[in-house]
Design a protein around this nucleic acid. Structure first.
Length: 363
RNA sequence: GUGCCACAAAUU
């Protein structure tokens, strides 16, 4: 079993889900996994969590007897849920864990705070913060950062600053969290002042600043920073392309896109460019690029559908929609809204009726 | 043994 554990660990490390699943099957066959003391399920849990398959992770988790799972196992699953955009499940798990008499530690709270900020639930987040104090949990840089970020995302800059001021040690992440809060809630220029005075900056800090400018339509300042930054990544490029596209300069957006280094071109880079053409009403170019995309996500599909609908080309929107293999709630919304806006009431209701058996709740 | 924080994109 020691041997299997290291195999599973290797899968987790290199993110190879398929190998991991094969191992999982083997372990079920030979019955090794069934004995809790091998801690093989714990290892599998970790593997599935790393691969972001929360469903399998939870299934494996349920196989582990309560006597053989610790805070780390709970935290592993919680953080997996948060990463997969299921923060409510993460909080549920947190409550359940306490019900089982397992105590959260400072790492658990990192995921806890992340869940609260995604839900915009400061109240719960603050309760967690108080819990940490009361129970004497250590405020590591990471834990404090997570708490700060929770306050920032909920618009509570005063609380965020209080955490920041009380930290005995700060990292570049701490500064970047405050920076993005200032940009978002107190204006780009105030953010810029902090940016200029920060003790250290990394690519995320630069990106936060560029993103702030580009959301403000100030592509001049964005460009200024873009040219001067020491390191760029795909987020940087995406923000620039998107910024130019939104400011109406689709030509500049395209030029940016063409300059993106190969390894930094990803599905989001493509998506913002396609969406840029869509927003500029150039559906033909958008379509060409869309067809060229190496990989598509929910966002482009919605963008294309909405774009065709705005041009009154509802038929074409439908063609696109029917090509989607796995649909999203937003994809449905785009189609239904498009039908409605073009006076196709019957089709809108038909689509509305059809989405529900497919497991979507209209919102 | 194993869990860890900040920056980018779609519908109304």
């Amino acid at each position: 079993s020691h041997y299997y554990r290291s195999l599973i660990r290797a899968c987790a490390r290199e993110n190879s889900l398929e190998k991991g699943q094969k191992l999982h099957a083997t372990l079920i066959k030979n019955g090794l996994a069934a004995s809790p003391h091998t801690f093989l399920y714990n290892a599998l849990l970790h593997m599935y969590a790393v691969c972001d398959i929360s469903l399998s992770a939870h299934n494996v988790f349920d196989q582990i007897p309560l006597t053989h799972m610790d805070t780390i196992d709970w935290t592993t699953l919680m953080s997996c849920y948060v990463r997969n955009g299921l923060p409510d499940k993460a909080l549920l798990l947190f409550r359940f864990m306490q019900g089982e008499g397992v105590f959260p530690d400072e790492v658990t709270f990192v995921s806890f705070f992340a869940a609260c900020s995604r839900l915009g639930d400061v109240k719960t987040g603050q309760q967690g913060h108080v819990y940490m104090f009361k129970n004497g949990l250590p405020f590591t840089v990471t834990a404090s950062n997570a708490a700060m970020d929770m306050y920032v995302k909920c618009g509570r800059m005063i609380d965020a600053r209080r955490v920041f001021d009380e930290m005995s040690e700060r990292s570049v992440v701490s500064w970047s969290i405050i920076l993005s809060g200032m940009i978002k809630w107190e204006g780009v220029e105030n953010g810029r002042n902090l940016f200029d005075e920060m003790p250290e900056r990394n690519v995320v800090s630069w990106n936060a600043m560029i993103g702030g400018y580009s959301k403000n339509g100030d592509m001049g300042s964005a460009w200024f920073l873009f040219e001067r930054m020491p390191v760029r990544n795909s987020v940087t490029w995406t923000e620039m392309i998107d910024g130019f596209a939104r400011s109406g300069d689709i030509v500049a957006a395209r030029r940016m896109f063409d300059e993106v280094p190969f390894e930094m071109k990803n599905v989001v880079t493509w998506t913002v460019l396609v969406d840029g053409y869509v927003s500029n009403g150039q559906m033909d170019t958008a379509r060409e690029l869309f067809e060229e995309m190496p990989e598509r996500n929910f966002f482009v599909w919605s963008s294309m559908i909405a774009g065709y609908c705005k041009k009154g080309q509802v038929k074409e929107a439908r063609v696109i929609f029917d090509r989607i293999s796995v649909r999203n709630l937003v994809n449905w919304n785009a189609l239904i809204a498009g039908y409605a806006q073009n006076g196709f009431c019957k089709e809108a209701f038909e689509a509305f009726a059809r989405m529900q058996p497919e497991g979507f709740k209209p919102d």
